[in-house]
Amino acid sequence: MKPILHSRLSQALVLASALVFTTACRQDMHDQPKYKADGASAFFADGRNNRKAVPNTVARGHLNEDDHLYRGRIDGKFAETYPFEITAEILQRGRARYAIYCQPCHSPQGDGNGVIVQRGMKRPPSYHIERLQQSPPGYFFDVLTNGFGAMYDYADRINVEDRWAITAYVQTLQLSQNTKASDLTPEERAKLTAATKPK
């Protein structure tokens, strides 16, 4: 009798069943040695793939010379104006960004009594106090960019344009909370009455 494994058929069968086992394991192509965001690195001393810029270097196109746009200052003083025109669209953007990044602490109205504050966060001042009412846009931009006291900065999470958009929305909130019904046009007042009427 021929040894079993010498028949063509059984060889084919053995090979075919061996194929089955290749499907279940992770091969090299699954985990390639390339670096991906947020991964661990065996090469760099801090164990991170994500690299910071080397100190005292500037990435191409990131010199950020414009003091007004990037630091909210003009001649060293907080800017009283916006570096670009604030349109209704930008205000909507600011509103949406405010809801993501600020609302948890500052509350939708900006009175500083957000959910996180109710759970033990230091209470921020209301935006509607005299001092903040008087603060220029550049000041708010600076608070977002560099942080303020117990509040950490948002420079690495919110880009420059969005920080200005949020500033514009915060100033809109200030305006809205301090406008009297008598300051509105008749049409606006009609809208307000309709919207606040109990159903």
Binding site: M121, Y152, D156
Partner: peptide, 13 residues
């Protein structure tokens, strides 16, 4: 990053 957690947890818990 850890900083995001600490934005709240430097105060809360």
């Amino acid at each position: 990053p850890t900083k995001t957690c600490m934005g709240c947890h430097s105060q809360v818990w």
